[in-house]
C-alpha cells in the first residue's frame, strides 16, 4: 500500500543534465525561477518556456514523468487561476453578473500564472529527477558553507538531511510490516469505521516510534564507533567537481536570463 508512493524520484541517466555538478543545478534552478518571474510580457514567458523545454529534452527523462510531477499541484493551480480571474479588474469586461466580473486582463494574468507555475514545477522536478538526494544534500552543504563563519551548523544540517532521506524507505517498509502484523491481530486499518481506524492507528504509531528510537540509538553508536565527531576535517567519498559542462550551462542560463530582462525592459 505505502510502497506505491514514489519517494526520492531520482531517475538515473547519463544525459548532460545528469552530469552537471549538483551545485550548478541548484543555482541554475534558482535562476530559472527568477527567469520565470521576471517581466510580464508574453515574450519573457516564451523565453523561459523555451529554456525549460530545452533542459527537459536534454535530460532525456520521459515527458510523462513531468506530467506526473505537475499533477499534485492541480488544485492549487485551479484556485490560483480562479482568484486571478475573479479579482483582477483590467481590460475589457467579458462577463458581468452582480459582483462577479470577468475581464480579459484577469484571464491573461491567470493563464500566465498557470504556465509559470507549471514551468516552475517541471523545472524544479528536473533537479530531483537528475540528482540523487544524497548529492543534492552534499551540494547544499557546500553552497551554504560560507554560513559556517556565522556559526550556522551547516554540516550538521546536511547530515540530518541525509540521514532523514536515507531512512525514508526503511521506515516505509517498517510501517508496512507493522500494519500487516496488526491486521493479522484483527486491527482494522484500511477498513472499518473512521473511529475504529483512528483508534487502531495507535497500534501502528507506537511501534513505529519505538523502532525509530531504537534505530537512532543504533546509528548513533555506529557513528561514534567510527569516531564521527562532526564535519571538522572530514573528507568526502564523492568529490563535487565542476567541469566545462557546468560553465557552459551557466553561461547559457545567464544569456537566457539576460534575454528575458532585456525583452522586459526594451520591448
Amino acid at each position: 500500500m505505502l510502497r506505491d508512493i514514489t519517494l526520492g524520484q531520482y531517475f538515473p541517466g547519463k544525459s548532460i543534465i545528469h552530469k552537471l555538478d549538483p551545485r550548478t543545478k541548484i543555482i541554475l534552478t534558482i535562476l530559472l525561477i527568477v527567469m520565470l518571474f521576471t517581466g510580464d510580457k508574453l515574450i519573457c514567458l516564451g523565453i523561459g518556456a523555451a529554456y525549460t523545454l530545452m533542459a527537459v529534452l536534454l535530460s532525456r527523462i520521459p515527458v510523462k514523468m513531468f506530467v506526473k510531477s505537475v499533477k499534485p499541484i492541480l488544485p492549487f493551480l485551479i484556485i490560483t487561476a480562479a482568484f486571478n480571474i475573479f479579482i483582477i479588474d483590467k481590460g475589457d469586461v467579458l462577463f458581468h453578473w452582480k459582483a462577479i466580473k470577468i475581464t480579459t486582463g484577469g484571464i491573461n494574468v491567470s493563464v500566465f500564472m498557470i504556465i509559470r507555475i507549471v514551468l516552475l514545477v517541471a523545472g524544479s522536478s528536473l533537479l530531483t529527477y537528475t540528482a540523487s538526494p544524497i548529492t543534492i544534500t552534499d551540494a547544499i552543504e557546500k553552497l551554504l558553507s560560507p554560513l559556517k563563519k556565522l556559526h550556522f551548523p551547516v554540516h550538521e544540517l546536511a547530515m540530518m538531511m541525509s540521514i532523514a532521506l536515507r531512512f525514508i524507505p526503511t521506515l516505509i517498509e517498517e510501517t508496512d510490516k507493522i500494519i500487516s502484523a496488526q491486521k493479522a491481530r484483527g486491527a482494522s486499518i484500511d477498513s472499518g469505521t473512521l473511529r475504529e481506524r483512528a483508534g487502531n492507528l495507535i497500534s501502528v504509531i507506537v511501534p513505529l516510534f519505538v523502532s525509530s528510537f531504537r534505530r537512532a540509538d543504533e546509528l548513533a553508536t555506529a557513528m561514534e564507533c567510527r569516531c564521527y565527531n562532526g564535519g571538522e576535517g572530514r573528507t568526502r567519498l564523492r568529490q563535487l567537481r565542476t567541469s566545462a559542462c557546468d560553465y557552459i550551462a551557466a553561461a547559457v542560463t545567464v544569456m537566457f536570463l539576460a534575454a528575458v530582462i532585456a525583452a522586459d525592459k526594451m520591448l
Binding site: 517498517e174 510490516k177 507493522i178 500487516s180 502484523a181 496488526q182 491486521k183 493479522a184 491481530r185 484483527g186 482494522s188 477498513s191 495507535i202 497500534s203 507506537v206 511501534p207 519505538v210 523502532s211
Partner: peptide, 20 residues
C-alpha cells in the same frame, strides 16, 4: 476476511516490534 484472520493466526518475523 477479518474473520479469516481470527481463524488463521499469523505471527510475523520479529513480532516483538509490533508490541504497543
Amino acid at each position: 476476511i477479518r474473520d479469516v484472520r481470527f481463524r488463521v493466526g499469523l505471527v510475523f518475523q520479529y513480532p516483538e516490534y509490533q508490541i504497543f
